[in-house]
């Protein structure tokens, strides 16, 4: 059965639609919590999408490779320093009033918050499906994430691991009574997590933005004037799109095809 109206775009045009949709989506932000080894992490993150190459795969997949995600992260690590707890010994010295001894003083180390700011980008490849909806009198065609095939974080995990280590050292410097325990503390804390954990954290944050990700590639009013009014006795001719479907059709070059019945 043929449709009343058919529109088709090839992969080149589909790329143009995607990049316009990325720009229209703008910056998205979220916040949440995760973990880094034994330490809790709260974060806020903002991302924007750009680039990527569309491949159309029949019957209904829009594969996007190399989708670039630029992100800015504000992490706050919560580090319990109680493993450093120790006691100052009883100290006795001679004074003009005889030998005087202080009592033993036990130092309880706090849980510190370590802020880390970090920005970089990742490249994601994933498969999107087609979703057509009628919303407030407009037909909207979205591509919606179905699965993330790959996340390439580049060198971000290494850089973030270094940034976290530096931030921890700075934060510990301000902790009273840490003294020469500073190096020991930094060593113990940074040994508690490594590249794998940082990679996992970054991937988790990227996945938060990928979950449910959709790009709007087409929007059209359900009812529109097909012919303008020609005069007082020749009114405009309106057309109502009763249904719209979207699919990828295989031919000598795959195309994204929109079909409408009026």
């Amino acid at each position: 059965m043929t449709s009343d109206l058919v529109a088709a775009v090839d992969e080149t045009a589909a790329n143009v639609l995607l990049h316009a949709a990325e720009a229209a989506l703008g910056t998205r932000s979220t916040s949440g919590s995760s973990s880094l080894g034994p330490f809790g992490v709260s974060y806020s993150a903002a991302v924007s999408f750009s680039g990527g190459t569309v491949r159309l795969v029949a019957p209904g997949t829009v594969a996007i490779d190399g989708l670039r995600i630029d992100y800015s992260l504000s992490l706050t690590l919560s580090i319990d320093l109680s493993f450093l707890d120790f006691c100052l010994p009883r100290i006795c010295i001679p004074t003009p009033f005889g030998d005087i001894c202080t009592p033993k003083i036990c130092i309880t180390f706090p849980t510190i918050s370590v802020p880390v700011s970090f920005s970089d980008h990742a490249k994601v490849s994933g498969d999107f499906g087609l979703d057509v909806t009628l919303s407030s009198g407009e037909w909207v065609v979205d591509v919606v994430i179905q699965q993330v095939r790959a996340i390439d974080l580049g060198t971000a995990a290494t850089l973030l691991l270094t940034a976290i280590g530096t931030a921890i050292s700075v934060a510990l410097l301000a902790v009273p009574f840490i003294g020469p325990l500073l190096a020991l503390a930094v060593g113990i804390i940074t040994a508690a997590f490594g590249i794998a954990e940082v990679t996992g954290l970054l991937a988790a944050v990227v996945n938060v933005f990928m979950a449910g990700l959709r790009f709007e590639v087409y929007r059209h009013a359900q009812t529109f004037a097909a012919l303008p009014a020609g005069g007082p006795f020749d009114p405009a001719v309106d057309v109502t799109l009763a249904s719209v479907t979207a699919e990828v059709q295989a031919s000598d070059e795959n195309e994204l095809v929109l079909s409408a019945d009026i």
Partner: peptide, 8 residues
């Protein structure tokens, strides 16, 4: 750091 001063 960590040491104690006594004022008499």
């Amino acid at each position: 750091v960590g040491q104690t001063v006594f004022w008499a």
